[in-house]
């Protein structure tokens, strides 16, 4: 298993959360919600491409809607491999944070 980058982790996380509605625009909104920052589309597209290449996610085309200038949506779905990876990361994360004493974080 490989470790994911933080961005990839965040992306996978939001795709998972969006369930059936995971396409770039919504992912961006979700990321904004989670991180509180506005993400550039470029960053999202590139990361999505990479995730797809590494087979963490798969994509399929949706329907056209007028508010998109007649262009179709590309929906993303986390693959089973992606899910597995995410689960493992979660385990590591939890292990990592579990016994970290809080006061260490609050120094100064």
């Amino acid at each position: 298993m490989k470790l994911l980058s933080r961005t990839e982790e965040l992306l996978l996380n939001s795709i998972l959360r969006l369930e059936e509605n995971a396409y770039a625009f919504m992912i961006r909104e979700k990321l904004k919600e989670i991180t509180g920052k506005t993400w550039a589309f470029g960053a999202i597209f590139i990361s999505l491409d990479r995730l797809e290449k590494k087979r963490y996610v798969e994509s399929f085309l949706g329907n056209e809607t007028p508010e998109r200038g007649g262009r179709r949506k590309r929906f993303y779905k986390v693959t089973s491999y992606g899910l597995k990876t995410l689960a493992e990361i979660r385990k590591i994360d939890q292990a990592m944070w579990k016994d970290l004493p809080v006061y260490l974080l609050e120094k100064e």
Binding site: F41, R68, R71, R72, K73
Partner: peptide, 17 residues
């Protein structure tokens, strides 16, 4: 590569929002 410009679509949607 798909030539469908789905990415442009996302940007359009953001624009409209």
């Amino acid at each position: 590569k798909t030539g469908l410009y789905t990415q442009l679509g996302d940007i359009d949607e953001a624009f409209n929002t």
